[in-house]
């Protein structure tokens, strides 16, 4: 698995420089403008990376070669899922860092967002500043948007091959964008100054569950597949 991860990171840095630059620019934007929609875009862009890397693997016949070495089918596909999680964690961590830096930088103006949100957590009232709640919501959405594209796309890629499987990508991105828009629209009808962290957490939970189910489905598919 370590060799597979190393290979993917090397390919990422050599073949996906543009992705990296765009993701870095979006993170820089977060440094400048704080929490909000823009936090989600690096996750959405990087969330498709395991799928793109799989396409390259198939084009270069890497999967066939790798199976002649010490790797198994299950190992090959599990590495892509693990890579997706690593990318999600890195993007979320960097976004959290960017938002923290932003908060420190504009601390003089933070009063603007100083309204408090109160949440019922297992019978206890937890009070969080509105700004922090927005930041947490953004991070949770970032987690969801990093996981969902890979979770939906990879089983199709393993089943139909990269060429046909890739056709699902626009659908997945459209679906993810729709989810986000519906979240923003639901905010309009909600109480002003309140961030629905429960819904964001629920979506992240669904994304994680979808990711796990997707891995299980892919294991079943890939065992029967010829490379």
């Amino acid at each position: 698995m370590k060799g597979l991860l190393k290979k993917d990171f090397l390919v990422l840095f050599r073949a996906y420089k543009l992705y990296m630059i765009v993701a870095v620019l979006l993170v820089v934007q977060t440094f400048l403008s704080g929490w909000g929609w823009q936090v989600i875009f690096p996750a959405l862009i990087c969330g498709m990376l395991p799928v793109s890397l799989y396409s390259l693997d198939e084009r270069d016949k890497w999967n066939t070669y790798a199976l002649t070495t010490t790797y198994t089918r299950r190992g090959l596909l599990s590495e892509k899922y693990l890579l997706g999680v690593i990318i999600m964690l890195v993007i979320t961590a960097v976004s959290a860092l960017a938002m923290s830096v932003y908060a420190l930088r504009v601390s003089a103006d933070i009063q603007v967002d100083a309204a408090l949100c109160t949440y019922d957590v297992f019978g206890h009232n937890v009070v969080i500043p509105y700004a922090a709640a927005r930041a947490i919501e953004s991070l949770l959405h970032s987690v969801s948007m990093a996981l969902i594209p890979t979770a939906v796309s990879l089983p199709f890629m393993f089943l139909f091959g990269a060429e046909k499987g890739r056709l699902i990508a626009p659908v997945v991105l459209g679906f993810s964008a729709t989810l986000l828009v519906s979240f923003e629209l639901s905010r309009i009808g909600g109480a002003e100054g309140f961030v629905d962290l429960g819904a964001a957490l629920g979506l992240a939970g669904i994304a994680a569950a979808l990711y796990a189910v997707s891995w299980l489905v892919s294991v079943l598919i890939v065992q029967k597949r010829d490379f």
């Binding site: 370590k2 060799g3 190393k6 290979k7 090397l10 390919v11 050599r14 073949a15 390259l56 693997d57 084009r59 270069d60 016949k61 890497w62 999967n63 066939t64 070669y65 790798a66 002649t68 070495t69 010490t70 790797y71």
Partner: peptide, 28 residues
């Protein structure tokens, strides 16, 4: 203990020989 060379070698296009060495060091 088996070495395999296929018709289409299967090494990812962007990798260099140095990279291949690094990947294989973590494979075998």
């Amino acid at each position: 203990r088996i070495g395999v060379v296929l018709d289409e070698v299967g090494i990812p296009a962007p990798l260099t020989a140095n990279d291949v060495g690094a990947v294989m060091a973590s494979t075998y």
